[in-house]
Amino acid sequence: MPTKTFIEAIREGIREEMQRDDSVIVLGEDVGKKGGVFLATDGLFEEFGEERVIDTPLSESQIVGTSIGAAVNGLRPVAEIQFADFIFPAFNQLLSEAARMRYRSNNTFGVPMTVRAPYGGGVHGALYHSQSVEAFFTHIPGLKVVIPSTPYDAKGLLRSAIRNDDPVLFFEHKKMYRSVRGEVPAGEYTVPLARAQVTRPGTQLTVVAYGLMAHYALEAADHAGEDGLSVEVVDLRTLRPLDKETVLESVRKTGKCLIVYEDNRFGGYGAEIAAIIAEEAFDYLDGPVTRIAGPDVPGVPYNHVLEDWFMVNPEKILDGIRQLAAY
């Protein structure tokens, strides 16, 4: 099977959906001739023309708001927000408009729109090019939130997102764009939304993670295995709607759960996972549900020593595994 980088898989997913369906358009800042600042849309302008690959002004609310309107009138926009850190001017359009359109119109209007955005730290991006923003959006009923970790999943989930009849936020960890490579089959396939995956079976402890942290969790779990600990890793892939059952099934089996996320710890997405486990798997627990997450500072600092201090890494996860295992 051919292998591709994470960004190649994403680009191929967009291109093939555009080939398959004329109603798919791409819009965002620098997505045209430049092909996006990370080259996620490289070559699409040449292949599909300026009408379907639209360079927008620097106006994120407009990127999302016009995507909503275009979606209402028969298109399937794939909007790119250049960095997830810059999505907040569009927050009102996502929260008040895209997320609520179907509910508030009693199912008479829908917004089949995908909003892609690179997120995450570890790339010397400092406070405003490193942020994890998923918790703001997973809180909102009416939005789907996807964070893939492998090229295979990225392509398959992106295709599902574009074909979905509701707004999907598709966050891509930018550190993975070129550092992660994996098998991607040539033919058409999709990966369903709202399905988590056990990426490493184990019996003594569950680690729940997503995005880059799903890789780091696997690394940490391998090291733990060298110590004789059997760690299971669950890669959520879709954060909302959440595949609760896969998480609960794993925790009921292992009795211990460590949740890993790169975002600030307080009120982060992992807090919801912890609450669900406490409510629905309490009787199976042999230890507290614990978290390894980013520190509670307003952003990732720039200096490499400070950035390393901020970032969750396999060593920190391994520490968390050992502490919980020893409980």
């Binding site: 109603s23 358009i25 009408e51 379907r52 609310s61 407009q62 999302v64 708001g65 016009t66 995507s67 909503i68 309107g69 275009a70 979606a71 209402v72 009138n73 028969g74 298109l75 926009p77 009102n92 359009q93 008040s96 408009e97 609520r100 508030r104």
Partner: peptide
């Protein structure tokens, strides 16, 4: 919705789709 003026972008997006389609 109730937050005012958000609808302008929807109408502009509708017009964009009308032009493309």
């Amino acid at each position: 919705s109730s937050p005012v003026a958000t609808q302008i972008l929807h109408a502009v997006g509708i017009a964009l789709a009308a032009k493309i389609r």
